[in-house]
Design a protein around this nucleic acid. Structure first.
Lengths: 362, 362
DNA sequence: GCAAATCCTGCAAACGATTGCAAAAATCCT
DNA sequence: AGGATTTTTGCAATCGTTTGCAGGATTTGC
């Protein structure tokens, strides 16, 4: 009747060796193996290997209240920034025999609440969250005091560790690059301000814009509601109707930039001939676009990897110092063809008007 | 001392209501709730809600030997075809309170063996595998008789269900499309033949090529070792050195197509002016490339979703008919600018030679 | 109105590990 | 050599569920 052959348990190997299960348990636990005589331990290990013993994770969890599982929450795994991050998380966790369960929220607070509850009932030991808002009431309430690592974004709460990219430096490099190409009127398509990436990139834009003397007439920013191509298009249109002149646009991420370029092009503004555009993240294929996108390369895999290590470290130290740490990963400016020196110097005046320059530049 | 407040268990709600835990257990189990009087059941449910009872997954698993967890194995989650599939899996599993644990193999058999063992020791109830080979010895050995759904690829073993795209129809549509544009000499950059997608697309190419009377001089196929842009470039070069003439190339997936287009362009062969190229999968951003890629759109999310449903269904029926089912999802041809009518009719002769036509077509 | 059937609930034994405690054995010390 | 100490091992409780079994209460049939 039993089509599935019985798994071998501690009891089986105990019987095989002729000792008590507790002895086997200790012999197999590296942390307690010194409590059993070396020869016996070796014999037990051999027997357990021969019988093909595999510990039962459920029993272990029930007893120890640890699952060696981390809950990972992202807006949408299909957004191209997340796969390499998740891969990094899995690689990092795998080093310590942890696994992850990932859940998507679609940026919906109710969904987020639900997935956190699900993860809790699964008994995850800790969380890696890519969905945190700057002020996030949900998190403290639903993580049951377990370690939380906020990735990509930061939450304004000292209890939560974080690992993020150096957004500030990324924006600084982009602006410096554009200014060095002669751009002065530099617009910004900002991301949603309730998430820290959107906010940080926007405030970096403001800060360095002033510092570098760009857009001296005042800020030239519009705000996207999501980090999507569609919003990029919408925001580009919005920039055009302001009537303000600009020769370059710093976009808060690659998708916004792609949308913006498309919208500009539809209005006869070619990138980079008439306008330079930059992205952020360097997602796959943006190097193959026409023009290839100037952007900021971030270390997605590493970010995931480090957050995983941080999580298991926090778990090991559990009870001790629940020290939170904050990690900022360096970025890299990658200059491609979507940015170019201003030439000829932009005539002051309306830009929204159709504007067909020479189709081909040198 | 206890910084983490105690989770509420069956015992707590039992005490609160004044009944035995077994009664609570039954009242809360929809399948057994009729074994307890309706009023009492309601009272118990209310109390459990008020106390915030959340079942302990570990205890449940230990007792029932079911984890409501599915192991998902992919080559690399960072490959753009997988994220939407995984999202689909998670959406499908979520409907039934299942979750997934995903693991990457990097197409390495040893790694695959390791991750399968890990998943087994986690006690997953079943597997969804995107890594199967056509003849795969690993799978039967390491899945312990649990349900296995092979996705994207098929394995030649009646025990395993599968859900795949209609590769055959996809290739047929591409070839028909090209032939209708006047192409006759149509090459193929095939994927790895040990995986069923590579194999199926290649054999479909051969079959329909003959049927449609394309490449009458005989097959014109080269084989990529991986589904990557680099291999696409290499294979394109390889095609050129054959000296055979061709006006179109059907590539086994989008990445190969992207690489091929780049390689052709480096040799002065423009797509689509001099050569038409097609992809497969319609991954993100291929619509934004220059030229936008003609390709076959597959239903990634749905594929994942359906495989998830199949998996839980197999689990429900466990013990009953372990009927395996095979599902083939329809595809969709999406014609973009990387394919164009041959014009002027290709002069027979060498193609490898540099060949600059009018830069701009009609 | 009484025996039989049915319904509801509780008891207790699992599931497979970990771990404090105690007993037994080995080792040490003087 | 004999008591004290340490090392090695076993016993048994426990984690939070599920579930077969049985007994008590209730309903049913005649």
């Amino acid at each position: 009747m039993q089509d599935r052959k019985q798994r071998v348990t501690l009891k089986h190997v105990a019987k095989a060796v002729g000792v008590n299960v507790s002895t086997v348990s200790r012999a197999l636990d590296p942390a307690a193996t010194h409590h059993v005589s070396p020869e016996l331990a070796e014999e037990i290990r051999k027997a357990s290997r021969k019988l093909g013993y595999k510990p039962n994770a459920a029993a272990y969890s029930l007893k120890t209240n640890r699952t060696r599982t981390i809950g990972v929450v992202v807006p949408d795994i299909a957004d191209p920034v997340f796969p390499p991050i998740i891969r990094g998380i899995e690689d990092g966790l795998g080093l310590h025999d942890y696994v992850s369960i990932v859940a998507n929220t679609d940026n919906d607070a109710r969904r987020e609440e639900r997935v956190l509850e699900t993860l809790n009932s699964r008994g995850v030991d800790g969380f890696i969250l890519a969905t945190t808002k700057r002020r996030d009431a949900l998190i403290p309430r639903l993580t049951e005091g377990k370690p939380v690592i906020s990735i990509i974004r930061k939450v304004d709460d000292a209890r939560f560790s974080s690992v993020v990219h150096d957004e500030d430096e990324g924006i600084r490099r982009l602006l410096t690059h554009l200014v060095s190409l002669g751009h002065r009127e530099i617009a910004h398509i900002a991301g949603p301000q309730e998430v820290s990436t959107g906010f940080m990139r926007y405030s970096a834009y403001e800060r360095y814009r002033k510092l570098l003397g760009a857009s001296p007439a005042g800020t030239l920013a519009v705000f996207a509601r999501t980090f999507s191509e569609e919003e990029g298009e919408r925001c580009a249109e919005e920039l055009l109707v302001t009537g303000r002149a600009f020769t370059a646009v710093v976009c808060a991420n690659d998708q916004l930039a792609i949308g913006a370029i498309a919208a500009f092009q539809r209005r006869g503004l070619l990138c980079p001939d008439n306008i330079s555009v930059t992205g952020f993240n360097d997602i796959p294929l943006v190097d193959r676009l026409q023009p290839p996108l100037t952007t900021v390369r971030v270390q997605h895999h590493k970010l995931g990897f480090e957050s995983a290590l941080l999580a298991v470290e926090a778990l090991r130290a559990s009870g001790k110092t629940p020290k939170t740490s904050h990690m900022v990963l360096p970025i890299e400016l990658v200059v491609r063809a979507s940015t170019r020196a201003v030439r000829p110097p932009m005539p002051p005046g309306k830009v929204g008007a159709r504007k067909r320059d020479a189709e081909r530049a040198d």
